[in-house]
Nucleic acid binder design. Sequence first.
DNA 1: CTGAAAGCGCTAACAT
DNA 2: ATGTTAGCGCTTTCAG
Lengths: 337, 337
Amino acid sequence: MSDGKPARPTMEDVARHAGVSQMTVSRVMSSKGYISEKVRDKVLAAARDIGYVQNRLARGLRSEQTPLIAVVLPTLGNTVFTDVLSGITDALTQNGYRPVFGLTEYSETREETLVRDLLSWRPSGIVLTGLEHSETTRQAIRASGVRVAEIMDVDGPAMECAFGLSQKAAGQHTARHLLGKGHRRFAYAGSQNGQDLRAVKRLEGFRQTLRDAGAVMISEDVSTAPSSMVEGRRLTADILSRADQPDAIYYASDDLAAGGLMHCLSNGIDVPGTLALAGFNGLPFLNALPLQLTTVETPRYEIGLQAGRFLVSDQAQEALPDGCVDLGFTLIPGQTC
Amino acid sequence: MSDGKPARPTMEDVARHAGVSQMTVSRVMSSKGYISEKVRDKVLAAARDIGYVQNRLARGLRSEQTPLIAVVLPTLGNTVFTDVLSGITDALTQNGYRPVFGLTEYSETREETLVRDLLSWRPSGIVLTGLEHSETTRQAIRASGVRVAEIMDVDGPAMECAFGLSQKAAGQHTARHLLGKGHRRFAYAGSQNGQDLRAVKRLEGFRQTLRDAGAVMISEDVSTAPSSMVEGRRLTADILSRADQPDAIYYASDDLAAGGLMHCLSNGIDVPGTLALAGFNGLPFLNALPLQLTTVETPRYEIGLQAGRFLVSDQAQEALPDGCVDLGFTLIPGQTC
DNA sequence: CTGAAAGCGCTAACAT
DNA sequence: ATGTTAGCGCTTTCAG
């Protein structure tokens, strides 16, 4: 035996060992068509004996469909997306599908190349983050004919079906809550240099509600770094170092808000007496903080689950209002405002 | 035009539009062999015009290799593994590879079926968690000829190459630290019903060091639930409700330890005066706690990065002592012991 | 219920 | 520098 090429066994080999035709092996493997109990057992035994592993590339090529779902996420460095990915994976796994994924790092250009690349695997569906995509991306997807699920956002038209929440409404809701507590002078702290389009929409909703109520946004600080507690702490220190002091800070995320809270605790700033704080996402680590942070909880896992289920379901979804499934959000009052 | 089948363009179509042979298109697409500047541009233009997307299934089938790496992780519900996955993804992406992954939920049986399934995509490499795998799994991998990287653990023989840290040494190190602070009566709190084999190894190292020092382990509580702060809090309350009180608790993870810390703070238990606490992993959320938790920081991202790089590097790794790359760990002293 | 033939879209190996 | 031929391992289609 030359070991230059291990030569993985094919259906042909299984067929020879079982004394049947290769086609019969194919039928047994994919449980398609009628096969006698006897032959099936014989084939399965032969397959096990010689260590047969089916070749999905060949199957996919011939049948023009694969149990693959492409997943395009901005990053894995944010619990939000790993939660969503968990949901997607669970939904897919339950139906025999597998995720193949790639990360954009919030770049539209990277999304374009990534989508093209992922599409070359001929997946039967694709998950995209957000509602904003370049025309190139849209065309590639349309041309490929794969099903699309967009996640996180429902404020706008979906290509096919979107699963998420109204980011704008979340911002508005938080603003109303803060206003209801008597706060009037606000500051905003964000990260990622505004590349997170969902955060931008929340901010817009927040601003709008402030405007309607005649309250003012004193400052908006957005760092270029990714969201983190350290960054939140720094931003907060910055904001409070200026002459014009806010009585509430709205953060783009819980990490930032938690960092802000740390700054206040360390510097003896009374929360929420002197300064109110509000975050976004409702991440579990908030339970580890000495003060329950006011935030908006999002159904991250559920979003992934439903998006995944949508892509692997065989019947087309009933016509939805505007192709969006709003999974809502919950404001968690907390003790910081 | 019948829209029953969109009929995605093939290299044949591109060739026709560019007025060259199909093989020339193939050469342009894979940048293989010599192609004149002129022809290359013509082909690329034609491809763009008709919206050609290469078919990797066909390519993989014919060339008997794919830029796919199978990744088998226990869960995504633990930051540890999403950090590792980040590292893997970064390493792969930089080299044009893609991850296809599946989750075992800590079940060896699920690992077996998952590996078989993943192997059917003919990946060129596979990442496995831990050093313990069933004989079936090992055989399937050996037969397939893919490269294997095992992650997290280096206490034992690797199939090919392992990237991680000595879990046992981490347990011993923590024990020594606790003993050095004068603690003598210990309790252990774990989760996941002992299915996390790395946690079991840490506990063994911890126990051994206690034994050698003549200290005692009063109790070992392991819940069946996944690791979480809530669970840690519950376990801690349980441990402290008994007659025999420990002066230090060693937790299987930071989540559990943080929950324990919350219990102490809420119940006025002096930490570390009355009770010392130590966790494991060095997760970033610890910075949000009012007290810096003593823990052992692990190079999670780095583990993923190196494992990924190993799998996509073309030259075989130099012979390593026992096939393991120990990326070490760092004890973070903290204020809880 | 089982088999034979054809071919999915691409690349390896050989031409030229 | 470009073209021709063959065939990867499977499923589709059509026969029995």
